[in-house]
């Protein structure tokens, strides 16, 4: 019985703080996406021709942890199968955050276009039981300047 109560409490705490965190994070992502609108991203490899400006690598990364509710939710989901909604928003947040940081890095270097953007997602846990559950996203690309 004690186990179930602990489980329930953790899940409720996880849900409340987890969704608060998530909402706050999304709000901040949307805001910063607006302010960094000037920096454009492309996954194509061919740079504009002719070009005479600076070019340098821009990178951004973030590690985002799951919350307990998401963990339980995904655990249940693995019994019934199907779409793991709880993790979808998690990786979405991580990707957009990493891209934003890459854009910020480019802006710091005075660059406002990023070409050949690559995204790498890595799970920090590797599914081990009782381990830290988190996802890392690394975004990088070649920063160029619109105004040479």
């Amino acid at each position: 019985m004690f186990e179930v109560i602990t489980l329930l409490t953790l899940t409720v705490i996880g849900y409340i703080f987890g969704s608060l965190n998530e909402r706050r994070h999304f709000r901040s992502i949307l805001e910063r996406e607006e302010t960094l609108r000037g920096v454009s991203t492309f996954t194509t490899r061919i740079p504009p021709q002719p070009y005479s400006g600076a070019s340098h690598l821009a990178t951004g990364n973030v590690v985002i942890s799951i919350d307990y509710f998401k963990k339980i939710s995904a655990g249940l989901r693995s019994l019934v199968g199907g779409r793991v909604n709880a993790y979808e928003s998690l990786v979405e947040r991580a990707r957009r955050e990493a891209v934003l940081r890459m854009k910020a890095d480019a802006q710091r270097q005075g660059l406002d276009m990023i070409f050949n953007v690559k995204l790498e997602t890595a799970s920090i846990t590797k599914g081990a039981k009782g381990q830290i559950g988190a996802v890392e996203v690394l975004a990088y690309g070649t920063g160029l300047s619109r105004t040479p």
Binding site: L10, I13, V63, D67, A134, E136
Partner: peptide, 26 residues
Amino acid sequence: RDIMAGFKNLVGGELIGYTELLTESR
């Protein structure tokens, strides 16, 4: 860092320590 991360695992959010570690390492 692991202890902090263990706590964050409950409530979710960015693991700043881990992010910094990976940035520095890269």
